[in-house]
């Protein structure tokens, strides 16, 4: 993983580049499964990959639906994090949404075509050994 430009790069230059970063339906990491088919799905982009969402979903729900192993790396140690409380208290679900960093994914409702980026920049810039 060497994509240090996650926060600043234009979308087309930063595709996920390791097995762990990819999040197809069969990564084996899925903590959650959909209760049923997703009706009237809209499309968002998570690190440039198209993902589906229901109208009214929060971004955090969509992130967990994909099975992505983390939405950010803690800037102190580089440790991976996923949403923890889902109600706006813990701030673990921070992501970049349409170019604005540090958005709470659990409080942000999806819009068609929304561009979400995981926050991996700080630990990479600080060259944490974990990353």
């Amino acid at each position: 993983m060497n994509d240090i430009k996650t926060h600043v790069s234009p979308p087309e230059t930063s595709a996920p580049d390791t097995a762990e970063q990819s999040f197809s339906a069969d990564t084996g990491f899925k903590l959650f499964a959909a209760l049923g088919p997703v009706p009237d799905a809209i499309t968002l982009f998570l690190d440039d990959q198209p993902i589906i969402a229901r109208q009214g979903d929060t971004v955090a729900v969509c992130i967990l639906r994909t099975g992505v192993p983390y939405n950010r790396l803690n800037p102190v140690s580089g440790a991976p994090r996923l949403p923890y409380c889902m109600i706006g208290h813990c701030f673990e679900c921070l992501v970049e949404i349409d170019g604005i960093a540090n958005q709470q994914a659990c409080l942000t409702v999806v819009r068609d075509g929304m561009k979400i980026r995981r926050q991996l920049g700080a630990p990479l810039a600080l060259k944490h050994p974990e990353v």
Binding site: K30, F32, A33, A34, G36, T58, R65
Partner: peptide, 9 residues
């Protein structure tokens, strides 16, 4: 409630 997601594993 809001994501229609259930835990697996």
């Amino acid at each position: 409630k809001a994501g229609h997601l259930k835990p697996t594993g």
